[in-house]
């Protein structure tokens, strides 16, 4: 069966003047549909580079990347935009909500690019905001929200076009313990509903929500472990 994500001999080399940085070295990896994966490692280990490539924001220097069966390498920038729009939900450490734009419109944004009509857009956005428990904040501006609330808006936005996978880059990095727990519980619930989730983190408390942990060091996978009991180990 085709995997959600398949990576073959992936290399990423950054050139900074005469200095070459080998950020990813011959990485091979597969992620199945419905998996909850945590990618761990110190800063500079290559995990963020991997995230950018998985998110179709960056291209590998060499190697193959298939997302949902699509060969990402042969796509134009606009085709990649479309893939990001339909297939991937992004959740960032810095929340990355659009400033001076209310919560509702932030959640609607991916649907605008997906050309969903205004009425359906609004209905879907309200539905998602209810799901993350922010029904009473739809008309607030991002700067009127707490960190946890911002991240919940970001999750609602990531879910807008019902993507098969969510990529979360240090989603709890700017949050306190309570808010972090809240966010991770939402991810866990989403995963139980069938969405694949990849979380990049360096915190073991966050990683423990995942049922598979990959650890990066110096651009290589040094550990790939599955939790006993799979998805239900926290229940």
């Amino acid at each position: 069966m085709e995997k959600m994500i398949r990576i073959e001999n992936l290399n990423k080399i950054y050139k900074n003047g005469s200095v070459e940085v080998h950020a990813l070295k011959d990485v091979n990896m597969e992620v199945a549909y419905g998996e909850f994966l945590a990618v761990m490692g110190h800063s500079g280990s290559g995990k963020s580079t991997l995230m950018n490539i998985l998110g179709c924001l960056d291209r590998p220097t060499s190697g193959k990347y298939f997302l949902d069966g699509i060969d990402i390498d042969i796509k134009s920038p606009d085709e990649l935009s479309l893939i990001r729009n339909k297939k991937i939900g992004f959740v960032f450490q810095a929340f990355n909500l659009i400033p001076r734009t209310n919560v509702l419109r932030n959640v609607e944004l991916p649907m605008i690019y997906a050309k969903v009509k205004a009425k359906q857009r609004r209905e879907r956005a309200l539905e998602l905001l209810e799901k993350v428990g922010l029904s009473d904040r739809v008309n607030h501006m991002p700067n009127e929200l707490s960190g946890g609330q911002k991240q919940r808006v970001a999750i609602a936005r990531a879910l807008a076009n019902n993507p098969p996978i969510i990529l979360a880059d240090e989603p709890t990095g700017n949050l306190d313990t309570n808010a972090s727990e809240e966010i991770m519980k939402i991810f866990r619930d989403l995963n139980r509903e069938g969405t694949s989730i990849i979380v990049v983190t360096h915190e073991p408390e966050v990683a423990k929500y995942a049922d598979r942990i990959i650890v990066f060091k110096d651009g290589c996978i040094i550990e790939d472990s599955r939790k006993e009991g799979g998805k239900n180990y926290l229940a």
Binding site: D78, S81, R84, F90, N96, L97, L109, Y113
Partner: peptide
């Protein structure tokens, strides 16, 4: 710049 980056990540094409 950041707003543009977010929008591109969320699926905005060049012409959008």
């Amino acid at each position: 710049t950041r707003e543009i980056g977010i929008k591109k990540a969320l699926g905005a094409r060049t012409k959008d």
